[in-house]
Nucleic acid binder design. Structure first.
Lengths: 192, 192
DNA sequence: TTGCGCTGTTAAATATTCTGAGCAATGCTA
DNA sequence: TAGCATTGCTCAGAATATTTAACAGCGCAA
């Protein structure tokens, strides 16, 4: 953890070719603030950081993007996983009921391998509109129960059970149990 | 601009099924702080926000990700463009000399169209190792001069000049002039 | 050398965030 | 109804971020 905010700011300010005072003028903050932040002597408020980034200009996402997958990173704490939930909701059109989350390990593109830690609350459902994409995927159920539909096959998997199939076959995941269901899965590119 | 930090926190806390007090306990901050932030009555420090997100858990990038392309967004201010420069440097292996920047308009994937605002400082070069990818790309030079190599053709373009080619043909961009060169380009998927 | 303009840093004053304790409202059980 | 456990909100004071103003170092020109 503990991403180096000060170092990051210094880095992007340098690559923008700006002095602390120049950036301060553009941003509407004082140069001392920038100095203190770059030395990690204080932790800027989101409001201040945004002002400063607007002077570069750079988005918040891009500022913290380095933090997402620090090049060559091998180990990831729980908080480091990238939450894809909202994106998948856009894709499935919100037809899926119940809460579920999909959190990705590292940079899938860079490694040509997407590994997800998935969680399905009771009732969670990827939706009647079956999923289809040009990949292969598999996984292992850790806890709870998950009903998986692949083509014309339906199976309920419990802890220790696993699956592996061609993602071009229409598929669907549903937690029909009373407990949360957790799964670790993998997928070959393209991911969707 | 002005992304709703409070609303966003409220939203993700709700979808995690946590009360202010529960999240506070996990995060190591007080529930009052979470209350104040959610009402946008203060702008949390980066340190505080990170603590709170660790209790979800969620990464900074993902927290601000919604800000990147607010669904259905049509207009983008300069600061809204997504800076891809660092990613491209990883790709080209840093062989390119001189500074250049590539800033993307909106969500290329969602629209199947990548539009970039590119900037090449004098001497900037995409590198001797020619670029190749499975797309088509084109663009218009706004200012300065740019030497473009496509296959065995070499051409120097100035303001108003344009290009369009199959990206599978090895290509390279170089600013051999004395002034900064700006280009607006477009690319079909996949982008790299 | 002196002086100017720039760089980044620092101390003290000010403004803001953050904490800790308490409040009101809701829902549930007896 | 009372009693208890939730929920989220408020406010005074402690802790921290931010500003203001000044300092020290460097390069360059007179």
């Amino acid at each position: 953890m503990s991403f180096d905010v000060g170092g990051r700011l210094k880095e992007i300010r340098a690559s923008a070719g700006l002095s602390q005072r120049e950036l301060a003028a553009r941003s509407g903050v004082t140069h001392s603030l920038i100095s203190l932040i770059e030395q990690n002597r204080n932790s800027p408020s989101v409001a201040s950081l945004r002002k400063i980034l607007d002077g570069i200009p750079m988005s918040m996402v891009n500022f913290f993007d380095e933090e997402r997958v620090p090049r060559g990173k091998v180990f990831f704490e729980a908080g480091d996983l990238l939450d894809l939930t909202s994106r998948l909701h856009q894709v499935s059109g919100g037809s899926g009921e119940g809460r579920m989350s999909f959190r990705q390990v590292g940079d899938a593109k860079a490694h040509n391998l997407q590994i997800l830690h998935e969680s399905y609350e009771p009732g969670a459902d990827t939706g009647v509109t079956m999923l289809k994409h040009d990949s292969h995927e598999g996984g292992v159920v850790l806890s709870g129960e998950l009903e998986i539909t692949v083509g014309d096959q339906i199976k309920i998997l419990g802890p220790g059970d696993a699956y592996l199939f061609d993602s071009r076959t229409p598929h669907r995941f549903r937690n029909i149990g009373a407990a949360r269901c957790e799964v670790v899965s993998a997928c070959t590119p393209p991911y969707l």
